[in-house]
Amino acid sequence: NQASVVANTLIPINTALTLVMMRSEVVTPVGIPAEDIPRLVSMTVNRAVPLGTTLMPDMVKGYA
């Protein structure tokens, strides 16, 4: 099973992502692959992402 990116904290809308905000976890449904974490750093989220939420491609500006 592939690990996905999961919010390690509440990420407010329009926040630039940092490494400490994200962790990898095997979850269903599958979200952004964990190997993309380095690429996500400094990208911003377009909605509030609660703790434990899987990051989906449409949640990160410029990812999809």
Rank of each mutant, 00 (worst) to 15 (best):
P38Q: 11
L51V: 12
A34E: 10
A64F: 04
N8I: 05
T53M: 15
V41Q: 07
L10Q: 12
E35D: 10
Y63L: 05
M59R: 03
T18Q: 06
V26P: 10
V27Y: 02
L51Y: 15
I37L: 15
V5C: 04
G52V: 02
T28M: 12
V20K: 12
L17S: 00
T44H: 12
D36E: 11
L40W: 02
I37F: 03
A48L: 14
T44R: 10
V27F: 02
D58W: 12
T54R: 04
T18K: 06
V60H: 02
P57W: 08
A64W: 04
L40N: 00
L55Q: 02
T18P: 00
M56N: 07
A34Q: 13
P12N: 15
D58L: 09
P50M: 07
G62D: 10
A16C: 07
P50S: 09
R47S: 11
V26G: 05
M43R: 07
E35K: 06
Q2V: 13
E35Q: 07
A64M: 15
R39T: 10
R39F: 10
V27G: 03
P38F: 14
L17T: 00
V27M: 07
N46R: 09
T15W: 09
P33G: 06
I11R: 01
S4V: 01
M56D: 05
T18D: 05
T15P: 02
S42Q: 10
T53I: 12
G31E: 01
T53H: 15
T9C: 05
T15Q: 10
T44D: 04
N46T: 11
T9F: 15
D36R: 10
I11T: 00
G62R: 06
S24C: 06
V60E: 00
I11L: 06
N1D: 15
D58V: 08
L19N: 06
P57E: 08
P50H: 15
M43L: 15
V30K: 06
V20S: 12
G31Y: 02
L10Y: 12
E35I: 13
V45P: 02
T28Y: 13
L55P: 00
T28L: 08
V45L: 13
E35C: 15
S4K: 00
A34L: 04
V6A: 03
P29M: 04
V27S: 04
T9I: 15
I13S: 12
E35N: 13
P29G: 03
M43C: 09
L51E: 13
D58Y: 13
R39D: 04
V41I: 12
L17N: 00
V45F: 01
S42G: 13
V60T: 02
V60N: 02
T44S: 13
G31D: 00
D58A: 11
P57D: 06
I11S: 00
T15R: 06
T54G: 03
V60C: 02
P33T: 10
P50Q: 09
T53F: 14
Q2E: 15
T28W: 04
E25F: 05
N1M: 15
L40M: 06
I32C: 04
I32R: 00
V49F: 03
M56K: 10
N8Q: 13
V41H: 04
V27I: 14
V30Y: 15
P57R: 09
T18S: 09
V41E: 05
A34Y: 14
K61E: 12
M56Y: 10
I11F: 02
M59H: 10
R39C: 14
M22N: 00
